Amino acid sequence: MADWFLAQEPIIRVGILLSVLAIMATWEILGPRRPLSVGKAYRWSNNWGVVITGTLLTRFLFPAGLVGLGLFVETQGWGLLQMLDLPFWLVVLIAVVVLDFAIWAQHVMFHAVPSLWRLHRMHHADLDFDVTTGLRFHPLEIVLSFGIKAMVVVAIGAPALAVLIFEVILSSLALFNHSNVRMPAAVDRVLRWFIVTPDFHRVHHSWYPHETNSNFGFNLSLWDRIMGTYRAQPQDGHDGMTIGLNQFRDPAWERLDRMLVQPFVGPADSYPINRRPETEGDSREEVTRRRR
């Protein structure tokens, strides 16, 4: 069964991605959480341009992909999990959980190091928050992220099936928790104890730095609770919060060519962790007056 899944990896990944995308996009139409500030056609065409660019670059540099690396690691017997006498299902489970924590830690690192923040801030510069935001990452960040995940796969000896499961969960939940959907509060309260919900992650896309530097999780919500980076609700409420950064507020920056050059434009000292002196109670006007 595992061999069949691996053989069908491209079909499985693309099929699930498109299915989740269709479901969340439909949900956004039927039950939106917030009105959008920029035309959807304009944002979506450019956000998808970033996705395609990053995908092509990654496939060119790493044609075998992360699952292929997992298969190679498995056949070579590399990594800690390959040395332990554990049931295969437990090895897969441990590998998925460890990879999820690695992504959480990587996310924090991209917020903490100014040079890495320059790459990651394109994701945060989106003036709206919807399903395409979950795929909008600078191509150079995608390449770096692949390298980090590859090192983890080799170090822990993650089998190919675990890598495939993790990649599918990561892409699916990234689409889910970036979606502009309205969910019953009672359902959200229960779900966020286990996974990252849209209201959970939307706080991370607030333009207040103390909120941007919280709720880093993509899949499991426990990492933010354990590490003390969890913030339940945004300061201005979900309906009143401002999405994005205090930079790149002009919708012209949503254009593909301008998104690709954002890492090389303007200062990088506004949002990285421990680089900004504002307090939680700062008003919008106080944030606006700061350097852009």
Rank of each mutant, 00 (worst) to 15 (best):
R34T: 12
V14D: 11
E285H: 05
D224T: 07
T26S: 14
I169A: 14
E254T: 01
E167V: 07
N213G: 10
I94E: 03
Q262K: 08
V181H: 04
T242V: 15
L116H: 02
L84F: 05
S37E: 15
L6Y: 09
T133R: 03
E28Q: 13
A2K: 01
G237K: 06
T133S: 14
V143T: 10
P35S: 09
W4F: 14
T58Q: 14
R289E: 14
L57D: 01
T197M: 10
S270L: 13
S206H: 02
Q8E: 04
A105D: 00
V131N: 04
E211R: 03
S19G: 13
H205F: 09
V190W: 15
G70E: 00
R275M: 13
H111G: 10
V113R: 00
H238E: 12
A41N: 09
E286L: 10
P87F: 00
S179F: 06
P272T: 07
L173Y: 09
N246A: 03
W207Y: 12
L86C: 04
V143E: 08
V113C: 04
D224H: 12
V287N: 07
I11F: 14
V265N: 11
Y230V: 08
G65T: 06
F264S: 05
F176R: 00
E285I: 08
P267L: 03
M151C: 11
L93D: 00
K40G: 02
V287S: 06
V20W: 10
N47L: 06
L119H: 07
R291S: 11
T229E: 06
R258W: 11
L119A: 01
R290A: 10
R202K: 14
V92A: 01
V113F: 09
K40C: 02
G147Q: 06
L57M: 15
R202M: 09
E74K: 05
L18M: 13
A105W: 14
L90F: 15
Q262A: 09
E141A: 11
S19T: 15
F146Y: 15
V196M: 11
V97N: 07
S45D: 12
A155R: 03
N215C: 06
F62Q: 06
Q233I: 13
A102Y: 06
H120D: 07
K40L: 14
S270W: 03
H210D: 12
G281V: 02
A162Q: 03
A160K: 12
R13L: 01
N274V: 05
P234N: 13
G244H: 04
L86I: 06
I156W: 05
